[in-house]
Design a protein around this nucleic acid. Structure first.
Length: 892
RNA sequence: GCGGGCGUGGCGGAACUGGUAGACGCAGCGGACUCAAAAUCCGCCGUCCUCACGGAUAUGUCGGUUCGAGUCCGACCGCCCGCACCA
């Protein structure tokens, strides 16, 4: 399939008087040729014994969902530019690729289309690999991994056993989304508005015994070490900090009132609070529906049981729980106020109190917490303010519909009156630490984390088997290491809901390794986040015999630059940070932080198209007419153009890489993806944009051709002095090498592209000048020098074009192996600077001064300016601000 | 609901650490070349006032700090990402 500019390549249209410049660069021929050369020479293979300094760059590996579209390519191209640039800078670069190939979509394909997950996955990997290779990425394919391959997950099972021995893996009960019709556990994304996506049944929360990893053991360290990650985006560090959620607070024992204690047979309720200062404003106590006291009350009261059951409806996700209506149930119990025994506070069960956080019970202070206020208004509970905002009259201060959570002074609070919030917190803690209830201090200071242990059990087939055998007498028994890996059985069926492993008797039923009695394999598999929590280590240590060699890991790690989507800012990155530490604790590696540098790139978006019947159309089925109008090419029907959205198969707004490669060439696609939009933002794929990239690729080819035609032959010695044009071009070329190096180091590819454009303009002007007035005064030599610099500078971005130009310039080696051009510092310096002159903050003039002019000299020159004289009108200036080499502001 | 981010011409965006807002590209307009078209090259291009010189205005909205604010602070509006079983 061809269309667009390459299809208009008709030799008769070319000007016969021009030489090489007449030939267009033919990407379709050049690109496969150079890709083959790179492959044959193995120049992207990383060697562990290379003495040069290492640089490890990787992009987040893809899930093999099927065909890729050009949107997938963006982060790989970014990483590739950096990898190629670093090679030119003399680094031993590791740039690997792999497949995050376990997961739900493979099972859905099995259920919906009857394809085995394994076949589906490996077919997808094969076709996606072919497509990825089309992009001309400088990857070391020798280190390719697939997480679904036993050669990968065997080590993961060994790691699990290490964690188990170290006490970092354990079992406990936790809730899952249960589909009561399909009898299946659902992922959060399979719960749509509280119902199962296939059955439509209202989802329930059900408890299962599952495996957990003790990430909370590392909570403080994971938090503290964020400060050392200075090449991570601040926002990602902040998100992780908030996710870990360290808080300092107080655990307070509330004693039940005499009658309540008798009725419930429970003497106290323990509450965790970060606001003990507001204790005098307490209006209620709220228990989680999962709290032991809630359960006890439910035993004797059907209404309580019904309320708790009501709370269990809907999904388990925090989003669902936090957005659902806040409900409470008055248990009739009361507790005694810990600081004033004449006061009692009612006890509720509330659906928004989480058992996983704190103690599973809170006290509510409506005046100073919005959620508590909403709850109090709903159930008619008193709202007593206890923190008075600064400069407020207590008589005027009342809480309406908004809680006050700002600074202030305590009031209405007995012995706390007049204190600051911080002092009051301290005073309450001190007093309650002294009070004793049931032989314990009534208050205990407690650091708490929002972070919970990581539940890794999944009731699914297509995941890494958990290497454990359950025996009725011995309990869970680790699979002996010499029996690893526990491989997934291939002989499974997907004709019924639920986990096929539960039904795979031949695989499931095994003797207990300890006592030999009949036992069952663990049929849960691991969360796919486990697979991706250590794959970067496996890249570094790539032999199947020693899959996690300490020395090799130490040589390559940490990853110098990791590139991926912002959607992984918290979970994947936090789990990987934990995993690396846990492996270190087990003595497996000597690394602590896996990723020294992190970059989060934006997505590629594309307009969507719909025909009059409302069916989605592929971009190639549509002809754009401008002004947002479009028609269907084969029928001429009007097409509705929708706003740019993330490329997705379902909306057909995808562009396959092979279409771009066939039409414009991969370098155009690469150049376009790097242009214009900052890499961290979403970028829109447009026809006009790719055409612009095509013009640029041809322009570089033409500039190099012109320089070859007009410039001096290779090896011509430099003259001792250069003319004005020659010097200007030299400055521009050396400046380009320096500035693009800096742009790439900072991953500011769009700015790098702009700088290359700027240089191309200057280069074009120099060529015009050479055509008009000859190549004397060194211009001929500089034209060649400039071409040699330009080709190497664009090489990381448009590598195939660079190779073709490099050959044209007479080189026998590969551009991919050339050195990055070194900029001569003398050419980068300027001796004068243009200073803008502001009067009262508005630019009115500018002057050119020596670079090293003193402020006094500048001031004198500025005051002499006619513009300034006119503005001052004979009066002396009020003030003159001189910012050396930047600006002058005269305040009149 | 909670946490995080983004917002600059017709469009994508640039502006280093508070210092000339709009670099560079796209689209558009005008010109050169051509029998013609394509390609290429040159010029113009935020808005308003002005023949022009020049001036006013302008970075989502409103307010503040500063000699000076796209940049810092506060409030608001809109859009995007994550929320632990999608990956």
């Amino acid at each position: 399939m061809t269309r667009g500019p390459l299809s208009v390549l008709v030799p008769a249209l070319l000007n016969p008087h021009e030489t090489m410049t007449a030939e267009r660069y033919n990407a379709r021929e050049a690109e496969p040729k150079w890709q083959q050369t790179w492959r044959e020479r193995g120049i992207f293979r990383a060697r562990n014994d290379d003495p040069r300094p290492k640089f490890f760059v990787m992009e987040m590996f893809p899930y093999p969902s099927g065909r890729i579209h050009i949107g997938h390519g963006r982060n790989y191209v970014m990483g590739d530019v950096l990898a190629r640039y670093k090679r030119m800078q003399g680094f031993n670069v590791l740039h690997p690729m792999g497949w995050d190939s376990f997961g739900l979509p493979a099972e859905n394909a099995a259920i919906e289309r009857g394809i085995h997950p394994k076949a589906w996955t490996y077919e997808n990997i094969a076709s996606m690999k072919e497509q990825l290779q089309l992009l001309g990425l400088s990857l070391d394919w020798d280190r390719e991994i697939a997480t679904c391959d036993p050669s990968y997950y065997a080590e993961q099972q060994r790691i699990f056993l290490d964690f188990l021995e170290a006490g970092l893996a354990y079992r406990k009960e936790s809730e899952v989304n249960w589909d009561p019709v399909d009898h299946t556990v659902l992922a959060n994304e399979q719960v749509i508005e509280g119902r199962g996506w296939r059955s439509g049944a209202v989802v329930e929360r059900r408890k299962l015994s599952q495996w957990f990893l003790r990430i909370t053991d590392f909570a403080q360290e994971l938090l503290d070490a964020l400060d050392t990650l200075d090449r991570w985006p601040d926002r990602v560090r902040l998100m992780q900090r908030n996710w870990i959620g360290r808080s300092e607070g107080l655990e307070v024992l509330f004693e039940l009132s005499r009658a309540s204690a008798k009725a419930s047979a429970v003497p106290t309720v323990k509450v965790y609070t970060t606001r003990p200062d507001t204790l005098f404003g307490a209006a209620f106590l709220a228990l989680s529906p999962d709290h032991p006291l809630s359960a006890r009350l439910a035993e004797g009261d059907a209404r309580v049981a019904a309320f708790i059951a009501e709370c269990k409806r809907g999904g388990t996700s925090a989003e669902v729980i936090e957005t659902q209506e806040k409900l409470g149930y008055d248990t009739g119990l009361t507790v005694v106020h810990p600081l004033d025994e004449t006061l009692t506070v009612p006890v509720y069960i509330a659906n928004f109190v989480l058992m996983d956080y704190g103690t599973g019970a809170i006290f509510g202070c409506p005046a100073h917490d919005q959620r508590d206020l909403d709850f109090a208004r709903k159930y008619g509970l008193p709202v007593k303010p206890v923190v008075l905002p600064p400069d407020t009259d207590p008589a005027d201060f009342a809480i309406g519909t908004e809680a006050y959570d700002g600074e202030g002074t305590l009031f209405n609070s007995g012995f706390l009156d007049g204190m600051s919030i911080a002092d009051a917190k301290e005073a309450v803690a001190r007093r309650l630490e002294r009070f004793r209830v049931e032989d314990q201090p009534q208050g205990t200071r407690r650091v708490n984390f929002r972070l919970r242990d990581w539940g890794i059990s999944r009731q699914r087939y297509w995941g890494c088997p958990i290497p454990v055998i359950h025996c009725t007498t011995c309990g869970p028994v680790p699979v002996p290491r010499d029996q690893l890996p526990v491989q997934l059985p291939d002989d499974v069926t997907f004709d019924r809901p639920g986990n096929p492993l539960d039904r795979a008797k031949a695989w499931r039923d095994v003797p207990c390794p300890k006592c030999g009695a009949p036992a069952r394999r663990e049929t849960d598999t691991m969360d796919t986040f486990v697979d991706s929590s250590w794959y970067f280590l496996r890249y570094a240590s790539d032999s199947a015999e020693r899959p996690l060699d300490k020395q090799e890991v130490a040589h390559w790690l940490p990853v110098d630059q990791y590139i991926g989507g912002i959607e992984h800012a918290i979970l994947h990155l936090l789990y990987s940070r934990f995993f690396t530490r846990a492996l270190k604790a087990c003595g497996r590696v000597d690394v602590t932080e896996p990723f020294a540098g992190l970059f989060t790139q934006g997505m590629i978006v594309h307009e969507t198209y719909k025909d009059p019947a409302g069916r989605w159309l592929f971009p190639e089925e549509v002809k754009l007419l401008g002004d947002g109008k479009a028609v269907k090419i084969d029928t001429g029907e009007p097409v509705t153009v929708g706003p740019p959205e993330k490329m997705s198969k379902s909306k057909k707004n995808v562009v396959p890489p092979e279409v771009v490669a066939d039409t414009y060439g991969v370098d155009c696609a690469r150049w376009f993806m790097l242009s214009d939009t900052p890499p961290e933002r979403d970028s829109e794929w447009t026809q006009a944009g790719i055409e612009g990239a095509w013009r640029f690729v041809q322009r570089v080819w033409r500039l190099v051709g012109d320089a070859l035609e007009l410039g001096a032959p290779a090896g011509t010695p430099f003259p001792t002095a250069f003319g004005k044009d020659a010097l200007a071009l030299r400055r521009a070329a050396h400046g380009l090498a320096a500035t693009v190096a800096d742009d790439i180091e900072r991953l500011r590819f769009n700015v790098a592209v702009a700088h290359v454009h700027e240089f191309a303009n200057a280069f074009g002007q120099a060529i015009s000048a050479a055509r008009a007035s000859g190549t004397g005064e060194g211009l001929g030599v500089v034209l060649r020098e400039a071409a040699e610099i330009l080709v190497r500078v664009v090489g990381p971005m448009v590598p195939h074009l660079a190779e073709e130009c490099w050959v044209a310039l007479g080189h026998t080696g590969l551009a991919a192996e050339a050195d990055w051009p070194k900029a001569d510092p003398a050419l980068l310096k300027r001796d004068t600077v243009t200073l803008p002159i502001q009067i009262n903050g508005r630019k009115r003039d500018d002057i050119e001064v020596a670079l090293d002019a003193t402020p006094a000299e500048v001031e004198a020159a500025v005051l002499a300016l006619e513009t300034v004289q006119r503005a001052l009108d004979g009066r002396p200036p009020k003030r003159i601000i001189v910012v050396p080499q930047r600006i002058v502001n005269v305040v009149a």
